[in-house]
Amino acid sequence: MTNEQLIKEICLFFFFSLLDEEKAFDAAQRAWFQYQDLRKKLPGTKESVLVIQATGRVWNELNPKLQRWRPYLTKDAGWAWPAQLNMGPWMEFQKRSTADELMTTIWCYIMGYSESDVATGLGLSEGTLRFRLSHSIKKIGALV
């Protein structure tokens, strides 16, 4: 994958996880620099795994301070979505879900990463990953 694609995926992850464009920009920048450091330290590792690890580190730093009930989306900061797309259910899900459910859902079903890569990146078993994903899907389905 090119650098632009990797940066795009990192940006999308923090956009959906933080729902705050300013914080998402800062977090994406920090995660990108983390990724570059990890790439130097772990040269043989898969790019997707490194991206997940870098974003996971930054997310763990931000999560305790994150105020999930205050989304800040303006469409001017660099993220764009169709007008008919309703962000309400996702905002509600982001507020109610656990950090693990949020991360796994974003990586697997929004970014399209394989469950094995996500499990490796997060340091989980696939069974645990599927358990969290099933709960996430059920929650989102109930909110839609």
Partner: peptide, 26 residues
């Protein structure tokens, strides 16, 4: 419900990142 959830997550994939944002982050 799970079917709806899958469908909704599929729609969320339409969110795009502008090129200038990628340049700023880089």
């Amino acid at each position: 419900q799970m079917m709806k959830g899958f469908a909704y997550l599929e729609k969320l994939r339409s969110v795009e990142v502008q090129p200038f944002l990628i340049e700023q982050i880089d």
